[in-house]
Design a protein around this nucleic acid. Structure first.
Length: 470
RNA sequence: GGCGCCGUCGCCAAGUGGUAAGGCAGAGGUCUGCAAAACCUCCAUCCCCGGUUCAAAUCCGGGCGGCGCCUCCA
């Protein structure tokens, strides 16, 4: 598997360090609000990475994705809502899980949250280790990381140190730092704020320490294999994670850094602070399906910005329809027999698909291989060159594609819940058949129109009438 | 101001030295009671200008345009 590594700014061959198991960490959501589809672009891309590592490269996964459930925004939000912090963040964790499931994101092995006792303890341990190695200083009860003690600082972001200007950084907590570049590891308690005393004084964790501590606690000894997140995390978050982890252990933190580019709206970054975001629910409210959303999110290269448009969703919807219609056609095959030509085409497509995914997740090329196969097999079906006996092989190839893309199963699940009760559809199809037999096409068309208006499309074929969701 | 990414058909998007994948939309045709679906055919020389090369969308230089990071952020 070739993967672009932000650390080297190059594609590299990826192989897990130990036990054929990929130890991967993903920076998850800060749970002060519902995630938007820009957030989910990253999580869908990471999901495709995870699935490609499992189902194409054949590795086992130990994948951790955290929830940041304590920071300025969660604290302020909980106070405003007059709720305990934990209860406040619970809502958004639940919402995230719902949205993630609805988008076909595979559950990962561990989903720690920062305020779990074991994690807070791990943070304190790491801070103490940093203290022993002389990387910290205290000021007003807070503990800071002293960047000057780590010469390699900046290796990920490759930022000019002088470019990080003193005073430019708006630290809402207004603690005293020796240098603008230094960052807080543990924040001293302020009145009315939640506080923990787990071994490095009363206070609460800084943003970066949780990921370093949880990654190493759950994934084991450094280095872990892959660390992922959105590009905006490269600096300062990931740079600081490296500083903490490598400062504390003296060993490389993560071998690969995988970053997803942003989702744009109107060619601008989609973000909560700009207010130009859509949620999963917004997409549903507009009448689109989440399979289409997932399709559009994974159809381009993950390292390229993706401009989100409703037109794009419509196009994704149609593209997906082409695939599912094809599969419907395969499932409806009646003539017997198998054909070597089918076998050859399928093998070709699977190889091309796997090669594309192994090439730094070239999903666009992978989809190209799928559509090439669809065209080839449609031509063969038209020429009666595909039989019932070929179907299992074709279907198993598409199951393989979808283990990685995770979009067809989503579509099927959507289709499995018809907008009208199944019995009603069947009755309408039957009534329409009767009308057609009488050559009462006015009535037949009326029935079809009626179903269409209620979200069901009818298609007449040689084997009778099929229905599908609009 | 510093660092980085990007600019391929109406829209989306692969390809990164050997003569432009794929999807959507569009046009014509086959099929159909009509549709739909499906199939066939058609539909770009790659932002501009120079340069390197037998050969460039692909490499180099210079423009123009867009975006991101440098501050919470997926």
């Amino acid at each position: 598997m070739r993967l672009f590594n932000t650390l080297s700014r190059q594609q590299e061959d990826f192989v897990p360090l130990r036990d054929n198991t990929v130890r991967m960490y993903t920076c998850g959501l800060t749970v002060y609000a519902r995630g938007h589809i820009g957030n989910f672009r990253t999580f869908v891309c990471v999901d495709v990475l995870r699935r490609a590592l499992k189902y194409v490269a054949g590795y086992k996964m130990h994948h951790v994705m955290n929830f940041t459930d304590v920071d300025d925004k969660t604290i302020v939000g909980a106070a405003k809502a007059n709720m305990p912090l934990r209860e406040y963040t619970d809502q958004y964790i639940t919402a995230f899980r719902e949205d993630a499931a609805a988008l076909g994101i595979e559950p990962v092995e561990d989903t720690p949250r920062a305020t779990d006792d074991a994690n807070l303890k791990a943070m304190a341990d790491m801070i103490n280790a940093l203290e022993q190695r002389g990387h910290t200083y205290k000021s007003d009860g807070s503990i800071y990381f002293k960047i000057a003690t780590l010469p390699s600082y900046g290796k990920l972001a490759r930022l000019d140190h002088e470019g990080i200007q003193a005073g430019a950084r708006v630290d809402s907590d207004e603690y005293d730092k020796e240098s603008a570049r230094d960052f807080v590891l543990w924040k001293s308690t302020k009145p009315g704020e939640p506080t923990w005393d787990v071994g490095c004084g009363p206070g609460r964790p800084g943003w970066h320490i949780e990921c370093s501590a949880m990654a190493l606690r759950l994934l084991g000894e450094s280095p872990i294999d892959i660390h992922t997140g959105g590009v905006d995390l490269v600096f300062p978050h990931h740079e600081n994670e490296i500083a903490q982890s490598e400062g504390a252990t003296g060993k490389e933190f993560s071998r690969f850094w995988f970053h997803c580019e942003h989702l744009l709206v109107d060619n601008q970054k989609m973000s909560k602070s700009l207010g130009n975001f859509y949620t999963v629910q917004d997409v549903l409210d507009k009448g689109f399906r989440l399979s289409a959303l997932r399709y559009i999110l994974l159809s381009g290269y993950y390292r390229k910005q993706l401009n989100f448009t409703w037109t794009g969703l419509e196009q994704a919807e149609e593209a997906l329809r082409r695939i599912t219609d094809f599969l419907g056609r395969v499932e409806a095959l009646t003539a017997g027999g198998t054909h070597p030509e089918v076998n050859a085409r399928v093998k070709e497509a699977v190889d091309a698909f796997d090669a594309a995914l192994k090439d730094d997740l070239n999903t666009a090329a992978g989809l190209g291989a799928i559509f090439d196969l669809i065209r080839a097999l449609n031509i063969l079906m038209d020429g009666k060159q595909v039989g019932r006996g070929d179907a299992p092989e074709i279907i198993s190839a598409f199951n393989h594609f979808d283990r990685v893309l995770g979009v067809l199963s989503l579509r099927r699940a959507e289709d499995a819940t018809p907008p009208i009760p199944q019995a009603e559809i069947d009755a309408a199809i039957h009534a329409r058949q009767e009308a057609r037999r009488r050559r009462d096409f006015g009535e037949a068309d009326r029935i079809r129109q009626d179903l269409l208006a209620r979200g069901v499309i009818l298609e007449d074929g040689p084997q009778g009438t099929r229905w599908k969701r609009k």
